[in-house]
């Protein structure tokens, strides 16, 4: 299992669209993907679960990824977060 800690860097936080991107990655993964945020642990394949967490900009989240493609999933999520969910075009 991999633990992957990432910071939310876009200006709006994890609203519908960023949550959708995360689900896109998580739902095609063979591994289980869970997200931990302020003491809550949810299945990252569920867009509603992610939205309900109301993850604010600047916060740190932790992904717990377990399975055959865990490294690949971690890399993809890292890239997604580092690119600010492709939102804040400079």
């Amino acid at each position: 299992m991999i633990s992957c800690k990432l910071t939310v860097q876009n200006t709006l936080g994890i609203h519908v669209r960023p949550a959708g991107y995360i689900v896109n990655i998580a739902s095609i993964a063979k591994s289980s993907v869970e997200l931990v945020y302020s003491d809550q642990r949810v299945n990252a394949k569920s867009i509603l679960n992610l939205m309900m967490l109301v993850i604010e900009p600047g916060s740190e989240v932790e992904f717990l990824i377990n399975g055959p493609d865990e490294q690949k999933v971690a890399d993809e999520l890292t890239e997604l977060f580092n690119n600010k969910f492709y939102e804040d075009a400079s």
């Binding site: 949550a19 959708g20 299945n43 394949k45 569920s46 867009i47 509603l48």
Partner: peptide, 16 residues
């Protein structure tokens, strides 16, 4: 049109 992709995703949400 992207918003509708999100709506579709919600409708397929396993937790829902």
């Amino acid at each position: 049109s992207k918003i509708f992709d999100s709506h579709l995703m919600i409708l397929q949400d396993p937790s829902l």
